[in-house]
Design a protein around this nucleic acid. Structure first.
Lengths: 344, 344
DNA sequence: GTCGGACTTTGAAATGTTTCAGAGAACGTG
DNA sequence: CACGTTCTCTGAAACATTTCAAAGTCCGAC
């Protein structure tokens, strides 16, 4: 009767001597079927090795059981932590999570989004290559629940969850100033990235509010924000004439900071005595570095979890209102800015 | 006519004035429909904003367009690199990739597998918590294409892709011996992990074949293989009496090595002069460490790519034969074992 | 004119679920 | 014993596609 096919509801029904509807009820509304038949059906299921076909379920029920996260850069652990937070929220809601990676390529992002649309996922979380990309509007217009993570987005046709980057910049540079540094470098780029701009802005604000000269806050642009970019920034730093050379650097993310740290140590500098370093994100590896890295902590998992909750609200709550959630970053001081002999 | 619904093939057909079948043909066998009608249909599609419903497609066609990877530990970048390799292969085959994370918890792994079964994915790649777990046999019995990644599995009811761990252990310790070390620590655990056992075995083999005493190869077991475990191993190492203290350590993965490196530097040791360190995997962060880490390189992306190819072969090739692919690891020597003043 | 073939298009069946109106059964109540 | 209730169960319709046999259409050759 089955000849190789994987068994369907129909087979279970036949084997248990009940109708299709009853089998379905056993799965979806067990309280409505008598204990006796329920047991019989369940036995038939395990005997046959029945596995519900999710496509058919979804087709008929019209609702899928998956969320999706399109992450920006798979090589940055930060995004995996965000994903982990989303995953936890998804687990609580008994949903599956599709994780995609755009690798910072807009075309790849579009391919993923298109596929997710085809899958009719319940909602999409995304850290977009470009928060202003028209294909995001398209999604919103289609009515797909959408949350932008770790970016903010003009307009109010979707929710977003991010951290106050201006504040992040402020506390990082404030900390360096407190440690007595008088020349500080800001390393990050490209400055078309909203985050980089805002972190830089925060840095400049606090710097001038402390009465320092803008000339003493040096912007060292990078092409991207990888470890390699951090190393090359370190080389450029070393190339500056001594009187212009900063004694501290604030990097727009931890990968840059790690690269800078490596290059500096390799070049024989002492960290933090010769060069203090602050990163951003506070990924696990920041604390694990040879000289543990001071960093501006983003609540990575919380970011993901909150985003997932927003997307679920949009998916299920008919009077959902879009909101722009903003978390507060905090400074985690470690050895890369605070030498042991000179405590805070 | 549409009142809010997302448009279906039927709507497209109506709007283009053709039958359902023709619209389907435009999508699946465009060569069979005349240029004129194809154009008309395509126009109707974009006008209506039609998006194919993948559930319905899959239900009818009986074949899904997704692969899945159940990774073991999301906090270890190694697995993300493997995932990236799989993703690339999936992209080539025009498939989507479901990435799940069991977090080393068997129960979570089972939940994921069950869901994937319900989704009727085309194939499953997995780095299992326990390669001998019965639920893997269950999958194989069901006929789901299955490939075990970075582990090997007794029996021959599925493919696997891994690295020669015994060889990896050999080359790591051989390298340390060449550098003149006479007492070496092996750090890793738990030793119930097949990989740990094999890497240790390789280490012991080469050590004795070099005529050294087994007493000079010290096994320092750890609970897991995280950065924190590496740090605590470092403390235990420091606690050994000087005459028994090794001058070099071979860590069963890079996270351990990174933790050990951090602890050692923090304790004032010079690396490699006071303690040489070799890791395993060669994740990006190994090269990015303050003292760049010597490591036994696994071809991470290749592992994933090869695994994906095997699973696709099993899914599509009727006379597929299971095979156990084994890659050859290679040593990447960096500053953590080779001091600048004493080149190889 | 008719025939045969090549090329297009159609319509209905099939896929595995869920849903829902209603049929039956069992049972206490008046 | 007729009646209303409550509890279970059933059967058919619906979901959005793909597939495929069969029906049309066109065209040149005889």
């Amino acid at each position: 009767m089955l000849n190789g096919r994987t068994p369907s509801v129909k087979d279970v029904a036949a084997s248990a001597g009940v109708s299709l509807g009853t089998v379905s009820n056993v799965m979806n509304r067990p309280e409505v079927v008598s204990a006796r038949t329920r047991e019989r059906v369940e036995r038939a299921m395990t005997e046959l090795g029945f596995v519900r076909n999710e496509s058919a379920r979804q087709l008929r029920a019209g609702t899928s059981r998956t969320l999706a996260y399109v992450m920006l850069d798979g090589t940055n652990p930060f995004f995996h932590d965000v994903a982990q937070g989303i995953e936890m929220a998804a687990e609580d809601a008994d949903l599956s999570l599709f994780i995609c990676n755009s690798n910072s390529r807009s075309a790849r992002e579009e391919v993923h989004l298109d596929r997710l649309l085809q899958q009719r996922v319940q909602g999409i979380l995304i850290t977009p290559v470009d928060p202003a990309a028209p294909h995001l509007d398209e999604l919103a217009r289609r009515g797909v629940p959408l949350v932008v993570v770790d970016r903010v987005r003009g307009g109010d046709n979707c929710c977003s969850v991010a951290v106050d980057d201006v504040l992040g910049g402020r506390i990082a540079v404030e900390h360096l100033a407190e440690q007595g540094h008088e020349r500080v470098a800001f390393i990050g780029g490209p400055d078309t990235l909203g985050q980089v701009g805002e972190r830089l802005q925060g840095a400049r604000e606090i710097w001038s509010s402390l009465g320092r000269s803008p000339d003493d806050l040096i912007y060292l642009p990078t092409e991207a924000m990888t470890v390699a970019d951090g190393r090359s920034a370190g080389e450029r730093l070393a190339g500056l004439p001594a009187r212009r050379r900063p004694t501290a650097a604030f990097c727009a993310n931890d990968l840059l900071a790690l690269g800078l740290l490596q290059q500096s140590i390799g070049a024989g500098l002492r960290v933090p005595e010769d060069l203090a370093i602050v990163g951003f994100d506070d990924i696990e590896f920041a604390a694990a570095a040879a000289v543990p890295l001071t960093s501006v902590r983003q609540p990575r998992q919380e970011l993901g979890r909150a985003a997932a909750q927003l997307v679920l609200d949009e998916a299920t709550n008919p009077d959902h209102r879009h909101s722009q959630l903003q978390f507060t970053p905090e400074l985690v001081a470690r050895a890369s800015t605070v030498s042991r002999s000179r405590p805070i």
